[in-house]
Nucleic acid binder design. Sequence first.
DNA 1: CATGAATGAGTTTTCATTCAT
DNA 2: TATGAATGAAAACTCATTCAT
Lengths: 204, 204, 204, 204
Amino acid sequence: MNIHSLVMADGSTREDKKECILSAALELFAEKGFHGTAVPEIAQKAGVAAGTIYRYFASKEAIVNAVYQRHKSQLLASVMADFPYDGNARAQVHHFIAATFGFAKKHPLAFKFLELHHHAPYLDDKSREVEQSVVAMANGFVEQHEHNKVLRKAPQGVLAGLVWGAMVGLIRAGWEGRCTELTPKAEIAFEEAIWDAVRRPDTT
Amino acid sequence: MNIHSLVMADGSTREDKKECILSAALELFAEKGFHGTAVPEIAQKAGVAAGTIYRYFASKEAIVNAVYQRHKSQLLASVMADFPYDGNARAQVHHFIAATFGFAKKHPLAFKFLELHHHAPYLDDKSREVEQSVVAMANGFVEQHEHNKVLRKAPQGVLAGLVWGAMVGLIRAGWEGRCTELTPKAEIAFEEAIWDAVRRPDTT
Amino acid sequence: MNIHSLVMADGSTREDKKECILSAALELFAEKGFHGTAVPEIAQKAGVAAGTIYRYFASKEAIVNAVYQRHKSQLLASVMADFPYDGNARAQVHHFIAATFGFAKKHPLAFKFLELHHHAPYLDDKSREVEQSVVAMANGFVEQHEHNKVLRKAPQGVLAGLVWGAMVGLIRAGWEGRCTELTPKAEIAFEEAIWDAVRRPDTT
Amino acid sequence: MNIHSLVMADGSTREDKKECILSAALELFAEKGFHGTAVPEIAQKAGVAAGTIYRYFASKEAIVNAVYQRHKSQLLASVMADFPYDGNARAQVHHFIAATFGFAKKHPLAFKFLELHHHAPYLDDKSREVEQSVVAMANGFVEQHEHNKVLRKAPQGVLAGLVWGAMVGLIRAGWEGRCTELTPKAEIAFEEAIWDAVRRPDTT
DNA sequence: CATGAATGAGTTTTCATTCAT
DNA sequence: TATGAATGAAAACTCATTCAT
């Protein structure tokens, strides 16, 4: 028994309860958006009283921001984990796509939430900071390989926007039934297509 | 004097007023989302009284659906207009991309609105139908050329999702300052990349 | 029919309704204080729906401030009206006391309200400004006559505090049944006592 | 922050804790009023848990009544202590004023609290009883000396209301910066003024 | 038809009180 | 006995919708 996870009456801990709230909020925000979700709804889905929410979060906005930061960081971590810094661009693209698809399949609600709440006006500075760091990393990667004549020459941001957009587009297509779920076959086809899109054409 | 454009006291017509409301709604919904926009706000921006809205639309949901259907159809029409049915796949891809970027640049609010309200729970059957017809057309196009061995082989929906997603990704990147505005140069680079992504690799 | 007092369905005007709200608020705030009064209570006593209040006032704080400013100004006006600027100090003291008691008898709730909300943290700058002007006037009066050796010498603010406090004390005593209602007899006795308190003793 | 917290660290007694709660409540109620103060706030300032409050007091109302009764009694005791029952009216007035001002200077929060919660609807019968006994004493004193032709003739309650009100007025003026703090000089001037107000005029 | 004041259910948030530990 | 997390009723405030004019 330690101060940071006191065990409660029902066997749950403080952290458990916060987790329940965050998880309920993720689900509802992903489904119905921020303004479309009422705090008591979150409370009910989390199995707590409405007032209890406010023992853990200062406001509804604080909840979205907590959810956003948590899952954006998770996504970033998923992509960064085992990233082949010393590999070639092809291997890095593979890792990036596989990691992103892996995250989207494992945490579809989180991915949906992140897409839906992207650049929302109620996100705070810290949330935007997390977002910025992801963008910066992507641009850095592209520029480095572009400069090394491995990637296609294109105005700043075009390749990054294309690749990220294409992945989101495919994942969304999966959710909405416009394509079969992300099978390994689909992933491979996608990856090859994207590689042909971004690599410098005169390269073999 | 005809039924569809009764002239009113102030010289305006029924259609004029409806137009004002739809245009105000488009702007606000694109900026602040459906739940983030109040009906009286729309009325004010449209220059009519709040109650007047309800002579033209049964509810707030009816407004958002009207806006969605109108601009989704417009987008579809833009892409279909002068479509080179008899041209080769390359020319068709060019037309598609140019038309879509053209629409996004000419009607940025409409494009933003459509992306933001994509698959929202308050969209009705008719809105979904419009969406479906767009998807069907895209898939038809892809399948035809895939079968003709012009396009890359990939599971159903992958190429369409990739291309559409990539375009949305680039346009968003422009809005959010992650890349320069959509210059002709950027469009050309994008188009070449996408063509390399979708064409059958062993084709020259 | 004029713009500033449009006649409504029930024959009432916009101003009438605002009046009802202010009057209901005065009564409740005087009785139960600011924090002790709920907005729906005000609405009910005013005979309007809770939401209607917010068509007339931006917030609960805006209501107290409107009530405060209105009645503080009225009190000031009552005291200033027909003030014998050219009379001697005795006549001025008489006028001041008579006018204040007159106000307190005619508008007991307003007087009670003003005493109860004196210097409350939710009063805004404008309310404080009104208060300041009253204090400044009182001090100016005292200093002038003190200097002319008509009034007793005392540190700044003592005589003003004493006189105002004494009046409030007597009025409160009346409310709380500690003395008979403010009969003319009581007023005369009070006035003579106060005059003996403030005049310079060696004066006859 | 309270003086009793150190004591509680080693062996805390029931009375110690009750003291802490009452002292915290006094401070907060005096500053922010009854409805403006939250029970958990009192608990925090008292250095106890919110639930603990309810082992000592049945409700928030019980706290405010306990505070009221305690300090009203204290004030009464301060005035009664060493009261010159055998002295003349002048000496008694002096004692009364000096004792009241002494209390107000020594326990400004208590004095402010008592003024602020005077006749509040949440005060119970016992609180009102304490208040009554003070009033009765004051009236008894006045009537006795009036009858002895020492004090001015005035309807029942007028002189008591005047004197008490004047004192409160002066003390408030001090709090609000309308006069210098209660210096001995100010007290003397006040006392002389009040004596001239209440004594029978034809008496020297 | 157009208006916009009025409505009241719904929103987010607070807080006096309880109760399992 | 003391705790403080949990509660849920009630607070202030918003807004989609109605309806008398």
